[in-house]
Structures are given as structure tokens and as C-alpha cells.
Write a protein that binds this DNA or RNA. Structure first.
Lengths: 164, 164
DNA sequence: CTATTATCGACAACATGGTTGACCATATCG
DNA sequence: CGATATGGTCAACCATGTTGTCGATAATAG
């Protein structure tokens, strides 16, 4: 296996290129696993971006502007995601009585159900890592990542998302 | 800081939700840093996907089909990325004398220069992690990730890409 | 040697999820 | 009350995927 990533550096200890690839592959493996199971559990149309958006909406609901802020995207983009989630039956918009400009985005029962399931699946994915690595190594890995990437919220502002 | 990610689980040791977010945040921080510096060094139009594609092209060049295989995307998508890289002057297509169907995608001198720079920047990013975490913790982190995501190649087949 | 089949690269149409700019309705402030 | 700020939406556009189709060329079977 020498055909990849060895174009210029013959055999250095660890290529700098590898680290982001490992991080992304780890991310992808968890996300793909969770969404495959979510699809099996009655949520085939839920895409990763939707899960993060619903997580950002939370049980209290948010306004479009606040959702955009939490996701780190434009409010128009947040609006589009909301449109899609509404179409799929995961959220609905309710007028705010206190401020007629605002609409509060709230999870529907189906949205809450999906969020609860996905939380369980994320926990299960993490548990599998814990089984393979051992709890200590996993905790050390998470601590290391927290030290390097302290602002890991919902900022998943990638342009598109994770293929299928 | 209790407003995020606590919708259902009051205070479990570590939320399963956090791990993918940490992985992605780590990935993003490295990618963003490298591309910001790359932009400063005369490559403002180079997007993360381009870097990975050029890495997959390598110094020997590849055919469109092989590039698609390496990136884990359709050959049409690989063709589009190649179009873009060609437009930006990072690669060119040369007819294969042995097989008139094929065209070999090769890096231009500018493409090679960008790839060399980006390799150095990735190494620098990793060195910074090493400084903060210490070489041993970083190595342990990488080992853990390799155990969980063994097939970290160029498979970055996300739909879109990393915002700006 | 020719006829079929397989492969390569491209084109077209479409989906997704971003962006910016414009705009109206409503709230807030001087 | 009038000026300004804010919230949500529409429209146009972009990047990067997807699938289906197809013509040109190569490889293989008869």
C-alpha cells in the first residue's frame, strides 16, 4: 500500500496529510452508521444535516435566525433546511404571539422521536468505539480533540453533505 | 453552557453526540488553517476538495476513471473536478498514445507547487497539534483513529464541501 | 478479419445545500 | 410619529454530487 499519499515524502514517521483524513473517516463512519440504522428504523429520508439541525432546534424550538446562528449558516439556508424538515414532518413553524415577525420552529412528535432515536444510536456508536479502544483510550482521544477543537458545536457549515 | 446537546440526557458522562462533532471540528480546523495559508501563498481558489483530488492524482497522473475510483465518487464527478482544476491551471489532460480512449490527468508545475506547499502546511498543522498535545498523545490519538477508521484514503465523497 | 462486447470520457438533467441581494412586515427607539 | 433595526422569505446563482445516455475506441469471440 504505497500508492497513496507518498508522492513527495518517502517514509516520514507520520504524514501530516493523514491526520485530517483519519478525523474525517472517523466522523464519516459514525455518521454513516447512525444514519443507516435510522433509515432502518423508519427515517430513511433523514440526512445528516437534518439531524444536526434538529439537534440545534432542540426541545424548546428556535427562531430561524437563531437556528442559522447555531448552525453557522445564513438564515436563508436555515430556512431551506427548515422547509425540508417541515415537508418531511419533523418540524413545524408556529407564529410567536409576542413578536409577529417571528416564527418559532418546533419539533413535531415525529421529530422528537427521531432525535431520541438518533441520540441512542450515537451513544451506541460511541459504545462500540469504547469496546474496541477501551474506555480510557477513547476518553483520552476525546480529551485530545477537545483541546484542539474547543468550539465543536453544531458548526457543520459544509457546503453540501455526506453523500447519501 | 448547557443549552446545546442536553435535550434528553441530563448529564451523562459523555454524550455520544459529541464524538462526531469533535472529529469534524478537528478536521475542519486543520483544513481551514491549511487552506487559509494556501490562499495567502498564492492559491486562493484552491478548495479542500481540490487538494484531495490533486493528492489523488499524484505525480504520475491518473485517468479519469482511476481518479474517480480513488476518490470514491462517480467518474462524471471526477470529470467535473478535473474541469475545474484544469480551468484553474493545476492540471491538464494529455491524450494517451497507447489508448486513444483515455486521457491522462497530470499536474502542471503550478499543481505540483501547490501540492508541495500543502504537504508542508499539513505537516505544520500536525506539528502544532504535537506541540499542544505532546507527541505521545497525538500518536495515541492517531492510532486510535486508525483502529476505528482503517480505510482513510481519499474517500471524501461528501456531497459538497466545507463552505468557503 | 469482422462482429460483438466492454471501457473510457463526456453530455444532459437533476438534487442538495450552501451563498448574496432584495424586500416586506413588524418592532423598537429618538 | 417617523427613522431605523430585525425577522423571515423570495429569487438567482454556485459548487459538487447523482443517474442515464452515448459516441469513440479497444478487446475478444467466432
Amino acid at each position: 500500500m504505497t500508492e497513496y499519499g507518498r508522492h513527495a515524502a518517502p517514509d516520514r514517521a507520520t504524514e501530516g496529510y493523514e491526520l485530517p483524513l483519519l478525523l474525517f473517516a472517523g466522523f464519516r463512519s459514525i455518521i454513516d452508521r447512525v444514519h443507516a440504522e435510522l433509515a432502518d428504523q423508519g427515517h430513511p429520508d433523514l440526512r445528516p444535516a437534518h439531524g444536526f439541525a434538529m439537534q440545534a432546534i432542540g426541545s424548546d424550538g428556535v427562531t430561524a435566525t437563531e437556528l442559522a446562528r447555531r448552525l453557522g449558516i445564513s438564515k436563508q439556508a436555515a430556512g431551506k433546511t427548515t422547509d425540508r424538515l417541515e415537508l418531511l414532518g419533523y418540524v413545524h413553524r408556529v407564529a410567536d404571539r409576542a413578536d409577529a415577525r417571528q416564527k418559532v420552529i418546533r419539533l413535531t412528535p415525529r421529530g422528537i422521536e427521531a432525535l431520541v432515536r438518533s441520540a441512542a444510536l450515537f451513544d451506541a456508536a460511541r459504545a462500540q468505539w469504547s469496546t474496541v479502544l477501551g474506555p480510557d483510550r477513547l476518553a483520552a482521544l476525546e480529551d485530545g480533540l477537545r483541546a484542539m477543537a474547543p468550539d465543536a458545536r453544531y458548526r457543520l457549515d459544509a457546503a453540501g453533505w455526506f453523500g447519501v
